[in-house]
């Protein structure tokens, strides 16, 4: 599914070359739930941008679902993002003036073929994140957790190969964060490939596997021995807190 071989990325500003990724290699198979972890400045954002086809590597190979991404032009990358990648951002990035439905349907605008059942698809995606009853709400009428769930529904609507989540709980309180992680868990159980990018080991331990970046290289790539279960934790949190 994802093949990364000796990936390098060097930024050059004003003649000064700054290597950020210095030969990163790993494979991620279909249906895996992987966390890419690292403190800030280790190149994890850069890696995420490359995995998300928002940026291109300076050297090395990135294969996504059999496509060599490095050789594609800007338009082809856009199309690839549209078809194969579902983004979830820390800051949600919803269109403020659009309803949840319209936000979820946004990627369909840029699809080659606009599906006839776009509305039903959006409703299904919203149902999958538990927000079927909020489809007419605008972002400012939703809580942070709900907004992030709308963003996940938006990532799901094109039925992407991978879901790429960048610090998805970073802007949320603990309970909302767990609810979001519970959705990822469920999506993973349904067979989706999820790549979680985070600096937080606690968040990373929801995944099956952690790839730890340090100074532009893979420092560690191992399975998580004791995976956290968001559903269990939500239960123990009790019913007293709000939906925050």
């Amino acid at each position: 599914m994802i093949e990364v071989e000796r990936l390098e990325k060097t930024y050059s500003t004003g003649g000064l070359a700054t290597p950020v990724l210095k030969g990163v290699s790993f494979h991620i198979d279909k249906g895996e739930y992987v966390a890419i972890m690292g403190t800030s400045g280790t190149g994890k954002s850069t890696l995420m941008n490359i995995l998300g086809c928002l940026d291109k590597p300076t050297a090395g190979h990135y294969g996504l679902d059999g496509t060599a991404v490095g050789s594609l032009d800007d338009d082809a990358l856009s199309s690839l993002r549209n078809r194969k990648i579902g983004f979830v951002f820390q800051q949600f990035h919803l269109l403020e003036r659009a309803t949840a439905m319209r936000n979820v349907m946004l990627p369909l605008i840029y699809a080659e073929e606009y599906p006839e059942d776009a509305e039903e698809m959006a409703e299904r995606a919203l149902t999958a994140v538990g927000l079927a009853d909020r489809r007419r709400y605008r972002p400012n009428e939703l809580s942070g957790g709900q907004q992030q769930r709308v963003a996940i529904a938006r990532a799901l609507i094109t039925d992407p190969e991978i879901i790429l989540a960048d610090e998805p709980t970073g802007a949320l309180d603990r309970k909302s964060g767990l609810e979001v992680m519970a959705i990822f868990k469920k999506l993973h159980e349904q067979g989706r490939t999820i790549v979680l990018v985070t600096h937080d080991r606690g968040v990373a331990e929801h995944a099956q596997r952690i790839i730890l970046l340090k100074d532009g290289r893979v420092a560690e790539d191992r399975a998580v021995e004791e995976r956290r279960d968001p559903d269990v934790e939500l239960n123990t949190l009790g019913a007293g807190e709000d939906d925050g």
Binding site: L54, S79, R81, R83, F89, H93, A111
Partner: peptide, 16 residues
């Protein structure tokens, strides 16, 4: 800017 970035992320080309 953020809206434009998001549209690009979900598949909009420069031309779009």
């Amino acid at each position: 800017e953020k809206e434009i970035g998001l549209r690009r992320a979900v598949g909009a080309t420069r031309g779009d």
